[in-house]
Design a protein around this nucleic acid. Structure first.
Lengths: 248, 248
DNA sequence: TAAATAGTGTCTCTGAGACATTATATT
DNA sequence: AATATAATGTCTCAGAGACACTATTTA
């Protein structure tokens, strides 16, 4: 914008702008991401990150929220508003991808977002998407991927996963993967699922409890499967902390 | 992109995509940013971040490099390539801004970058920019700003400054603000200029020297102004370190 | 001599990392 | 009984923070 003189509406090549989402959850102790199977060309039959074109009257943030709601069936903006203060779903912008040939049809600039949430409802297939399902991220980004992603979505997902991993080091977001109340053991397993490695549980407990506002104890106890009854915690008001938790 | 069905080339409203830059340097112990005075409407006479439209055949990264070269008169990609390994100028994407009314003329999505470098040549005015000059960031973002920025550039600059500040905590970038060789005292003053606060010099020295590859000692000494001759260092190969340096 | 700079040394306290230990519930 | 979980405790070591101290050069 702003300074260069070379804008001429008659000749300036227009861009399409999309918001693409890496929506993460943890199921069965495994980090998973929501993918849609493409029903049309290009990349028909490939899996892709959910996303869509930004409308003329909305920001890409709004487009991302809209897409998230469409894919998951939840109005997350309203959901976050209603429980003022502590959000249920976290959505944040990660990076923008703009290589000229990234979409063979036309010039598309994609603003990538990452979202994380607990127990989202089973997604419903949308009109042009053959399927929608959760994929273990390791099955997508691992050594021998079971899926090949469309466009540059493998790169986008890689960056988004790194963002989530990094954010668990110094934010309290991990608790968003869990229900309203949870045990420290469950929180610890979230870190394992996201990082692919676990800090020592005993040290992890000490660290989390030493951070003011990360978790707050409740009166309740679990009806454990194997093991003693565990104390249940809920999210505290803290969003970030220092010093961070460490990965290798 | 990718999944939603609602793209129709005949009706889809096009976006313009720009790359806008917060180019930082430290002069006279003060963090400064390069601004251009707008020569045309809207916001005629206001100051703005340098930037411009992305061309049809380039990425926004390429557009940012091009704008940086145009504003500073340096071909920074070539400069960085030629001294393989250690770059002279750092450029990185910060965030994308897309509020629908951010440019009154049309729908413009701006991908914001931040750059930092030492002693860039005095900028030359470009065709439609009345003036180009370095501004102390405090004069722009401080309590009583001396300039009002065009568009949402105040928000963009605020985010860019926070990015630089954060990056000095755990990267070796600070040395990019200095010449090829520098004293630890000079490096320390860079931190003061960027953070607006100084760690204790003695602790800072110990920390920097304890980080493998942050700085490498040379044989040379300064011809000091007041004070003893100081050892000169150059940048080492390390890019990041842990644990980080801390701000308040 | 004052002022700014250069450089070293020291003490304390926090907290991470690596364990060991004990107890409690389920299968 | 075996196993997974819950919870606490202990020891060591790295490193941040706060200072004191000395020395060197120029104005």
């Amino acid at each position: 914008m702003t300074t260069t003189p070379d804008y001429n509406p008659a000749t300036y090549t227009p861009f399409a702008v999309t918001a693409d989402l890496s929506i993460f959850t943890v199921r069965g102790g495994v980090l998973q991401v929501l993918l849609v199977e493409r029903g049309g060309d290009p990349y028909r039959g490939y899996w892709a990150l959910p996303g869509g074109f930004t409308n003329p009257e909305e920001s890409t943030d709004a487009a991302a929220y809209r897409e998230l709601a469409e894919e998951t069936g939840l109005d997350l903006r309203a959901l976050n508003r209603e429980r003022s203060g502590s959000e249920r779903v976290h959505l944040e912008q990660v990076k923008t991808y703009s290589a000229p040939q990234r979409d063979p049809r036309m010039r598309v600039v994609s603003v990538a977002y990452m979202a994380l949430a607990a127990h989202l409802p089973t997604p419903r297939a949308s009109s042009d998407a053959a399927q929608v399902r959760w994929w273990p991220v390791e099955d997508v980004l691992g050594e021998e991927p079971e899926v090949e992603l469309a466009f540059d979505h493998r790169e986008i997902l890689t960056d988004a996963r790194e963002r989530v991993r990094a954010k668990l080091e110094y934010t309290t977001m991990a608790a968003l993967f869990l229900e309203e109340t949870f045990t420290l053991h469950e929180l610890w397993r979230i870190y394992g699922a996201v990082w692919g490695e676990m800090p020592l549980l005993s040290n992890f407990r000490r660290k989390v409890l030493s951070i003011p506002g990360f978790v707050e104890a409740t009166e309740e106890l679990t009806e454990g499967s194997p093991g003693p009854k565990a104390k249940l915690y809920r999210r505290g008001p803290a969003l970030t902390f220092f010093p961070p938790l460490r990965r290798e």
